[in-house]
């Protein structure tokens, strides 16, 4: 049983082929994509270079900036450090999937627009995905200091932090009031 399990989960590995391609199914924004990738492809590059979902950004590639933040089963994670293969079977949500299907902006997007919570816009998807995760997380308090602490893994070099905080608080009020 043990050996059989191993073989089954490895996929088709040709011992002579170091590239060891694997076929996997990634569910992104509710849609399932079948991809054949080498194991060393991280989710961020799979999204951007294979699926052309370029909303998640590469700012450091090492978990040091937060621009690549996406939701995995609703929780924010740094997609640059997540092997794509390990995301199989989980619900991946990117910025492209945040708004309603009819185009109605998510409250966090609407708040970012109204509060000018960005400048260049490059970290913005990551900021909004993190904010979405935080607002859904019962373990994170929603006072300004707690939000700032919880958002600190998302660097905004333009320094639009004040407006981002205002937007997150505003979105929180909208969501709570709804």
């Amino acid at each position: 049983m043990a050996d059989a399990t191993l073989d089954a989960t490895v996929g088709h590995v040709d011992p002579n082929d170091t590239s060891s391609l694997q076929t996997m199914e990634l569910t992104v924004n509710g849609q399932t994509h079948t991809l054949t990738l080498e194991p060393n492809v991280v989710l961020l590059d799979a999204l951007r270079e294979r699926l052309n979902l370029t909303g998640a950004k590469k700012g450091c590639d090492h978990g040091q900036c937060g621009a690549c933040t996406v939701l995995i089963d609703g929780r924010a994670m740094n997609s640059c450090l997540l092997l794509a293969a390990l995301a199989e079977g989980q619900e991946i949500t990117t910025i492209e999937g945040l708004a309603d299907e009819d185009g109605t902006l998510h409250p966090i997007q609407q708040a970012f627009l109204e509060h000018d919570a960005y400048q260049c816009g490059y970290c913005t998807a990551g900021q909004m995905m993190m904010a979405t995760s935080i607002l859904n997380d019962k373990d994170i308090a929603k006072d300004p200091a707690s939000i700032k602490e919880a958002m600190s893994g998302n660097i905004c070099r333009c320094g639009a932090y004040k407006n981002i905080l205002d937007a997150v608080q505003s979105a929180h009020r909208t969501i709570e009031g709804a």
Partner: peptide
């Protein structure tokens, strides 16, 4: 005025250089 490019930046639709494939 809210930015006229806001909707693009907030949806992932703005095409930064590395986004172009």
């Amino acid at each position: 005025k809210p930015r006229i490019d806001g909707a693009l930046k907030l949806s992932g639709g703005a095409d930064y250089t590395a986004d172009i494939n």
